[in-house]
Design a protein around this nucleic acid. Sequence first.
RNA 1: GGGGGCAUAGCUCAGUUGGUCAGAGCGCUUGCUUGACAUGCAAGAGGUCACAGGUUCAAGUCCCGUUGUUCCCACCA
Length: 871
Amino acid sequence: MEKKYNPKSFEDRLYAEWEKSGCFKAVRDDDKVPFTIVMPPPNITGQLHMGHAMDETMQDTIIRFKRMQGYCALWLPGTDHASIATEVKIVEELKKEGLSKESLGREGFLKRAWEWKDKYAGRICDQLKKLGSSCDWSRLTFTMDKKCSRAVREVFVNLYDKKLIYRGSRIINWCPDCKTALSDAEVEYAEESGSLWHISYPIEGSDECLTVATTRPETMFGDTAVAVNPKDKRYAKYIGKNVILPVVNKPIPIVGDEHADMEFGTGVVKITPAHDPNDFEVGLRHNLPVVRVMNDDGTMNANAGKYEGMDRYECRKALVKELEEGGYLVKIQQHNHNVGHCYRCNSTVEPIVSKQWFVKMDELARPAINAVMDKKVTFVPERFAKTYYNWMENVKDWCISRQLWWGHRIPVWYCADCGAEICEKTDPEVCPVCGSKNLSQDEDVLDTWFSSALWPFSTLGFPEDTSDLEYFYPTDVLVTGYDIIFFWVARMIFSGLEHMRKVPFRDVLMHGLVRDEKGRKMSKSLGNGVDPLEVIDKYGADSLRFSLLQGVAPGNDTRYSDAKVEACANFMNKIWNASRFVISGAEGRKVKPLSEVKLCAADKWIISRLQAVIRDVTLTLNKYELGVACQILYDFTWSDFCDWYIELSKPALYGDDEGRKDAAISVLVFVLENTLKLLHPFIPFITDEIYRYVPGTEGTIMTKDYPRYNSKLAYKKDALAFEGIMDIIKSVRAVKAELGCAPSRKVSLYMVTENRRLVSANVDCISKLSGVKEINFIENSSEAGEKSVAKVLHIGTLYIPMGELVDIEKERERLEGELEKVMSEIRRADGKLNNTGFMMKAPKKLVDEERAKLDKYIAMREKILEQLKNL
RNA sequence: GGGGGCAUAGCUCAGUUGGUCAGAGCGCUUGCUUGACAUGCAAGAGGUCACAGGUUCAAGUCCCGUUGUUCCCACCA
């Protein structure tokens, strides 16, 4: 083994080896139980970021754990075409070259997009490999692969036939920059300070006016009514009359509608059905015409008269000026309101009436809600089920058509001759209605999330009834961020139920965002993103992985910091060096199995601790508490194994007793090997690299069995007894430190104890770890001599002659302090045992424990009092 | 308007069926070239677990309220 921990010297090598050996591959094996994770496919738009790094690390840890536990573990990787996101990027790229989508044409553009895909999909996969992701690359899927396209086609046609997909003119969110419709989920709202323009609309045939308040005056060209609340005493009398739309000089009706809020603005609201979802509804109720005033690119159309062709905001400015000059502008009020923005390009979204394709949600949502209620799908942590219900219960129809080119094209054809709409599983040659060949396919593509929704089964072969689907579906756990519940998780659940008749996964493990050191979201605009690859380059993948899991609770956000990674790198260094110690200690010797050596107290203690760790880590991992599992392993490895056991093993290791030496080496190797296995799912590289050097091992650690709790090795009593020895060591160290005695100064020890045999058996350890030269057993304190410091422990009373260092007064204070501690324990235990409620209702085990504690502390109290008397 | 989260040591955070739960890392203090590791070892200091109630024999842990903070959903023009 190299003297220094140097992850660069082995991480890439090991990954290549793993991949080559085929141990990531999952092939149906009916003798095993399957465990499946489908990877949330990263977009092909960019680089791996910290969020991915955490997401992938969690999945990899779980899948490696399950694989070692003997499951047929499949982690299926893929990438997402990310329709709108990718198209935006490519358009940007084209722009730099002085080109545009239109100049390339659909075909040319798609060619370009596929080139993009070939370039970036590979790159992101390479980055996943750097992290150590043990996914089955032979199953790598892209959301626009043939098999996904087939699934999309199947699903679209099925939903269409069931009339769960329909086309209609509705108010949708329109991004004027991307020039496409968006779903509700794709709009992000942000509060902006704006203005509320009060504009007066003259009442036809009267001198009176109604003043409306609007945040978007430019839409007034599309006003087809003004509404007042029928209960509004101020205005009810005008209902049925007309107002004259200023500038346009067109009469429009005054309608009575509950939508008008008497409290807000003037109480009169202009109704623009083509550009506002609420107005659209009002329009339906009152049979109002729908007049669009904007083009797809956010410029005004012919209905805006002389403003035609002008940008929406320029028009607003000019129009306000005209209104002001015409005396229509009553006032401008400062007004903060939420404005919707495109989640990809951040432009202000316009609600616009447009003919689009929708998925009807009512029927699909109900079973999806029930599946979570019935615990067919469980959110971890559970609170996210609420988020899910809230959305599902209020979900509106899903706008799935996008006016983009990159994506799954909508499988609907129109007959130019008879107007028929054709949606079939195979491309139609002729119109089934009139026989015409004059067919053209719908120009639009599907929302990228339409294909993502099918991911858990499209990747396994749907719509065919494949053996993989039967075996691996439903998948076991989906690991993803809480920010994606609506986009993806919810849609997978209803899609799985609708098309597979089964939920897509049993558990949803949610994680939070990885924020920067100051707790801010990592973002491009802030420039505070940290590149995981740079971190890997500096510290190694294992350190990054461990830092992303340690101390993280499911569903909670976490902060990335170099300091944390550095602390983890120190842990790796610790593992490396401890392993070197064990391996070099075993060099040139035959390592005997545990059953063939005589175990001492310390040996049994560490083996016992190991069993507890095996039990707890397995338990926590099964509950997806990765952060807790990390902590358990960190503490065990560093404190119990390195700080204690390795030090305890040294007297035996460097001594002459071959039997004890054999035992120590066996235990060191045994514990190390098990610890490496326990740690492997979290930090795969370093554990496998070291494993190769552990005597008696062969091949990679990743295919070995995960340690199982063995009650025969639990040694509960021995372990507890040995803690008495540890108490002695700790006490001597503490006394020395307190009195300013050099740790290297050897002291004698006098001891009153009933456990002479145990103590004698461990003299070497006590001596080595606390700098003691001899232990003398005595019957009572008087034999300890003058100038001794006394320590009352459960295992017995310790006297440490400290000569001139002892200050009687300080010693008295110290003992009194200890007495006080013991007394408070006694009071606590006594209080409990005298509480009839506790005695009657607490479990017997607890009562017994409490009684035992009380007895122990009372004994200690007596001994401390005796010491005080003797001072 | 509706729904969450968070509030624990100077800082960042764990603490999941209520009973050694008051913890970790970093920071701080004091020692230490102790034959794996100074990326280390040892000994320490430091918290009324936001505030006020309640349930219970027992409450960081469950319930109600208050305050602060933060996020999501809805979208009054």
